[in-house]
C-alpha cells in the first residue's frame, strides 16, 4: 500500500458505511412500521385521483436521447482537458494553442448541432 492508494481506502470505507447506514435505517423502518396495508387502493398508481388506464411505459420526447448523445462528446472532451489543466502552467503558450485547436474541432460539431436545431427544445 502506498500514499496513492491510501486515500482510496477511505473512499471505500465511506461507501461501505454509507450503505450500512442506509441498510440499518431500512431495517429499523421494517421493524417499526405496521405490517399490513389495509386498503387495496393504496397500491394503485397515483394519478391525481383518477384510476390509471394504461401502464406507465409511455412514449416520451426523443430530444432526451439527442441531448444524451451530444453530452457524450462534450464529457469525453472534458475528461481529456483535466490532465492538460493540471500541467498548463508548465507547458505554456504551445499547450494553450493545441487545446484551442482541440476545442475548435469540437465546436464545429456543436455549431452543426445548433444549426440543425438539435439544441432546440420543443
Amino acid at each position: 500500500m502506498n500514499d496513492y492508494s491510501f486515500g482510496y481506502l477511505f473512499v471505500g470505507i465511506f461507501a461501505l458505511v454509507g450503505l450500512a447506514m442506509g441498510l440499518i435505517a431500512f431495517f429499523l423502518a421494517f421493524a417499526l412500521r405496521p405490517k399490513r396495508i389495509d386498503s387495496d387502493l393504496a397500491t394503485t398508481s397515483y394519478e391525481c385521483g383518477i384510476p390509471p388506464k394504461t401502464d406507465s411505459k409511455i412514449k416520451f420526447n426523443i430530444r432526451y436521447i439527442v441531448f444524451a448523445l451530444i453530452f457524450v462528446a462534450f464529457d469525453v472532451e472534458a475528461v481529456f482537458l483535466y490532465p492538460w489543466a493540471v500541467k498548463v502552467k508548465e507547458l505554456g503558450t504551445y499547450a494553450i494553442f493545441e487545446v484551442t485547436l482541440f476545442i475548435a474541432i469540437l465546436l464545429v460539431g456543436y455549431f452543426y448541432a445548433w444549426g440543425r436545431g438539435l439544441l432546440k427544445w420543443d
Binding site: V11, F14, A15, V17, G18, L19, M21, G22, L23, A25, F26, L28, A29, F30, L32, R33, P34, K35, R36, I37, A42, T43, T44, S45, Y46, P52, D55, S56
Partner: peptide
C-alpha cells in the same frame, strides 16, 4: 420510520425498494 410500506402494484419491486440507497450512498461518499 413508522410509515406503512406502500409498494405500488405497477412498481418494479427490487429497484423501487433500493433506488433510494443508490441515490444516498454517493452523497455520503
Amino acid at each position: 420510520l413508522t410509515k406503512g410500506d406502500v409498494i405500488p402494484k405497477a412498481a418494479d419491486k427490487f429497484f423501487y425498494s433500493y433506488s433510494a440507497l443508490i441515490a444516498f450512498t454517493p452523497s455520503f461518499i
